[in-house]
Design a protein around this nucleic acid. Structure first.
Lengths: 157, 157
DNA sequence: CCTATGCATTGATGTACATCAAGAAATGAC
DNA sequence: GTCATTTCTTGATGTACATCAATGCATAGG
């Protein structure tokens, strides 16, 4: 756990970095965000005093989020390894957080078609086990919209 | 940890219940969902084999989600108290999961105005500390749309 | 078997929000 | 201070998706 000072605008973590850290904000304000293929920024989280800011990805995988300082900030930085050593079965929860993080980013940055394609990739078997209207409800679109997306995709092939 | 059998369609948990449980799916398929004010259903999560399904609310607060069985299922049920006894500092993570759950539900069920009002309530001070375009980026809307929402809200008062 | 209920599809129309463009106001650099 | 840059607002237009309504298909129950 190392204490550091970050001037407003400092980039603490880049999307794609492997050794993503955990940032405990003592003072100031951090933000984590991603940039989609269209170049659009989506803020995932603000981290004011006493918040924990981190990319919820598994240790030793490339992370998804940029993290920078919105105000001059004082922050405590830890590695995930450090934290996992203290509490090993955090791992399952971390994976859960990752799933939710992906979902939030998807909801903010993807249209109906992209969401559906992502869903099929992530849960290949579920599509056969539930009525399509439930898939639509999970994706945040109407059954009608999903029907049209599926029609369009089947044409393309 | 009690093992139970749930026929397709069985409702395991109602929105508003206090003692929400944790469900580990051994076999079958669960789903958790909420119903918004317009009566519309939003599926929060599917729980196939080996998934953990739960409302990520704090123990002893009314929960937000309905949970039911989409297929005939075999499930292990635990109370949150049980789990917290085993691992007390899960509490911080639970609160984090709750925040993300709220965000996902909000993204699926609310329009721009509702999201902004919710944001202001949840982070009253942040609005003053960051440019509005960052708030827009957090809410998943454009700065232009946020500007119009704010204009509309200020008229109303 | 027949009928009722739920599900999926298709078309017509509506709407919330995005995009594009321009100008005004605030902020920062020097 | 002045100029440049970023932020915010406002208007005009476009578009993805919702809503509404009708129809065809399953599936389940008696």
């Amino acid at each position: 756990m190392k204490k550091i000072n970050a001037k407003k605008g400092t980039l603490l973590q880049q999307k794609g970095e492997i050794s993503s850290k955990v940032y405990l904000v003592e003072n100031g304000l951090l933000r984590s965000y991603t940039i989609d293929e269209k170049g659009k920024e989506h803020i995932y989280m603000f981290g004011p005093e006493n918040w924990l800011v981190a990319d919820n990805c598994e240790p030793n995988t490339p992370c998804q989020l940029f993290i920078d300082a919105v105000e001059d900030s004082i922050i405590n930085v830890a590695t995930k390894e450090e934290l996992l050593k203290e509490d090993p079965d955090l791992n399952a929860l971390l994976r859960r957080l990752e799933t939710m993080q992906n979902r939030i980013i998807m909801l903010m940055s993807s249209n109906a078609k992209e969401r559906y394609e992502h869903f099929v990739k992530t849960y290949p078997n579920i599509t056969q086990r539930v009525p399509l209207k439930m898939v639509a409800s999970y994706l945040g679109i109407t059954p009608e919209a999903l029907s049209r997306v599926r029609h369009e995709l089947s044409q393309k092939k």
